[in-house]
């Protein structure tokens, strides 16, 4: 005995359309992955040619574009110093701003303005932050080109990222913790320093690492305010330095195969550093809450 329900199978036209869209969506994902695979494959294949001990331990001093050999030691040193200095500037300001927005702002007028401009600041192009430091630090104040000037430009790019990630983490801290602390008579600032910040600590560290990874690959500000050099300069406050992204750009704009090979090896080094930072950041956040993130 059959029950008449009036439900009919989905018509062929609708089924075809559904399948077609599904195919398009899968295709879109495939299209997005193709350039990633292509970039990574070429960087690894071409980068390994020159990714050797000499590359990691030598500078480009007295080495012409056509000469083989040479390395990126000076650029690696420069990038590490610049990124470290940029973090030293951006992290305190960014973290304190996040604390202001979450703990003191109370949704007031100033906090809404700050919050809006943090968003707008996220969109400041890296070349503009470089030009700003050029106009302000080097042209107006008469400071020399230096790694520190580059760090200043990078810190502007880092700040909004740090604020946003720290803010999100601080908001995740349950209010009960704050209230319990107040109830014990602990002043607000000590509650923030001793209760709220430690609770959010790993999350903040993750956000900072991601921000560092983001600025470590920036080239344009370095080009404008760090200048470049072929020699090792360990002092970020004096004289032109090199940075790894700048090194890649410099070598890539030369027409010789030896220079292009160095550019690829530099790109590989840069990607390895950035992937490492990303991986550490993910590991920290995973280690913090293995159950939630699976």
């Amino acid at each position: 005995m059959t029950v008449v329900t009036g439900i009919q199978p989905i018509s062929a036209g609708r089924r075809v359309k559904d399948r077609a869209v599904q195919a398009l969506v899968y295709l879109a994902f495939a299209i997005a992955v193709v350039p990633l695979v292509s970039v990574l494959w070429l960087v690894i294949r071409n980068g390994l040619k020159r990714f050797d001990i000499e590359f990691l331990t030598h500078s480009m001093r007295n080495i012409g574009a056509r000469d083989a050999g040479g390395g990126a030691y000076h650029a690696i040193i420069g990038t590490l110093e610049q990124v470290l200095l940029a973090s030293l500037i951006a992290v305190p300001i960014g973290l304190l701003t996040a604390i202001y927005l979450v703990e003191y702002g109370n949704g007031g007028r100033l906090s809404r303005i700050v919050s809006f401009f943090v968003d707008v600041m996220t969109g400041v192009p890296s070349v503009v932050s470089g030009l700003f430091i050029l106009a302000f630090w080097i042209l107006a104040l008469g400071m020399p080109f230096s790694g520190f000037a580059g760090a200043l430009a990078l810190s502007i790019l880092m700040m909004p990222t740090v604020v946003r990630s720290a803010e999100e983490m601080l908001r995740l801290v349950p209010n009960e913790l704050r209230e319990a602390s107040y109830a014990l008579g602990v002043p607000k600032w000590r509650s923030i320093v001793k209760v709220v910040l430690p609770t959010a600590f790993t999350g903040i560290v993750t956000g900072v690492m991601l921000a560092v990874a983001r600025v470590a690959g920036e080239t344009a500000p370095l080009l404008l305010v760090v200048f470049s050099t072929d020699s090792i300069n360990n002092d970020p406050f004096n004289g032109p330095q090199m940075g790894l992204p700048l090194y890649v750009f410099d070598q890539a704009s030369r027409p010789n195969d030896t220079a292009i090979d160095r550019a690829w090896a530099g790109a590989l080094t840069l990607i390895l550093i950035i992937m490492l930072l990303n991986l550490v950041a993910r590991l920290i956040s995973w280690w913090r809450s293995p159950a939630k993130r699976g």
Binding site: L96, T97, I99, E103, V118, F132, F136, M159, W189
Partner: peptide, 25 residues
């Protein structure tokens, strides 16, 4: 606590620093 005022000032000032940077650019 004596620390409350300065800490509040410091964090508010950081927010203002961001605004100043945007204007300075």
């Amino acid at each position: 606590s004596r620390g409350d005022g300065p800490f509040r000032f410091l964090s508010t000032a950081s927010g203002i620093v961001l605004l100043v940077i945007m204007a300075a650019i």
